[in-house]
Simulated assay, not measured.
Amino acid sequence: MDSLIETLGAIQNGDDNDQGLSSADEKKLINIYAAFDQDDYDRETIRKAIQMAVLKAIRVDQIQANYQITPDTIANVIGYIMAGVFHDKKQLSILDPAMGTANLLTAIDHQLQSSLGIDITISGIENDDAMFELAADSVELQKIHAELFHEDAVQNVLAPVVDAVVSDLPIGYYPIDANAKGFSTHSETGHSYVHHLLIEFGMDHVKKGGFGFFLVPSQIFQTSEAKQLLKWMQGRVFLQGLLNLPKELFQNSAAQKAILILQNSGNGAKQVDPVMLGEFPSFKDQQAFAKFLTEIDDWEQKDLF
C-alpha cells in the first residue's frame, strides 16, 4: 500500500521519491514513469486502474476489512437510484463522510455526470492517513475538482452542506466516547456504533429535503443499539427506502448490507407511502435485476415525488 501511494505521487510529480533502491533500479523506475502519460487515459480508466491496484495491495498486505473498496456493481446501483432522484437537477453537490480511497465517490460522480449531464461538486472526509492519500491521488489523477478533508468526521468537521450524502459506512464501535457525546445517536452505555454517528453527521450536512444514501448492515434496525438511531430519526428524517443487496455478495447473512435511503425534513419533503423495501435479485439474473430496477423507477416517479 505504501508503495502504491509513493508511485501515484511520483507519477504526478514527475520524479522518483523511492528510497533504498540501487541506482540501476532507480534509473529503471524513472524511465517507466517517463513513459507513462496520464493524458492517454480517460478518468474512468484511471479510476479503475487505481481500484485494481488498491485491491491487490489489500490482498497482498492482508489489510483489515474497513479498507475494502465498494465494488463497482454496488456503486452503479447507488448511482442509478441517485440518478432517478435527482433527474431534474441542474447542479448537484455530494459529500462522503467516510470516503476511504474515494472509489465510491468518484464512481458515482462519473456515473451521474454521464447519465444526467449536470455540474457536480464532490467533497469527502477521511481520517486514515493511507486511505486519504490514495483518495487525494485518485482525485488528482482523474482531474476532478474536489474538497477533501483529512479529519475524523465525528470530531465535528466544518464540512459543506450538500444536496446528498453517500457513503459505504465503516461498521463497528467508535473508540472515543467523549467525541460521540454530542451526537443524539450515541450509546447510553459503552461505545457507540460509528455507522450510527456517521449517518447523523451526514444528514446534519444535507440541505432541507436533501437525501442520504448509505451502505449499512441489513439488520441495522434490529440491534439493541437501534433504539437511539430510531429516536433520532423521528421528526428529523424520513426513512424512504431500505434495499437489501443480494446475499451472494457476502460471506454470510450477518455480513449482508443494504442501501438505506433517508430524506431530511423540510422543503416540501414528506414520508413516502409505501417505503421502498425489498431485496435485489442476483446480479447474475439480468432479467430479474432489470425488472427490479423498473420497480425502483416506478416508485421514484409515482410515490417519492
Rank of each mutant, 00 (worst) to 15 (best):
E6A: 15
T7W: 10
Q12E: 12
I46N: 05
R47H: 04
A49N: 12
Q51W: 05
A53H: 00
D61M: 01
A65N: 13
P71D: 08
D72G: 07
G79W: 04
G79L: 04
A83H: 02
K89L: 12
L95I: 00
P97S: 00
A98I: 05
T101Q: 11
D109N: 08
Q111G: 03
I122S: 02
G124M: 05
N127C: 13
V139Q: 01
L141E: 00
L148C: 11
F149C: 08
E151S: 13
A159F: 00
D163N: 14
I176H: 14
I176W: 12
I176T: 13
D177R: 15
G182C: 06
S184L: 15
S184T: 14
T185D: 02
S192N: 01
H196L: 01
E200A: 04
H205S: 02
V206I: 08
G210S: 09
F213Q: 05
L215Y: 08
T223A: 10
K227Q: 07
L230N: 05
W232K: 06
G241L: 00
N244S: 13
L245N: 10
P246W: 10
P246Y: 10
F250L: 13
S253P: 05
Q256N: 14
G266I: 11
G268L: 04
V275I: 11
L277M: 04
L277I: 01
E279A: 13
E279Q: 12
S282Q: 03
Q286A: 08
F289V: 07
T294V: 09
D297Y: 03
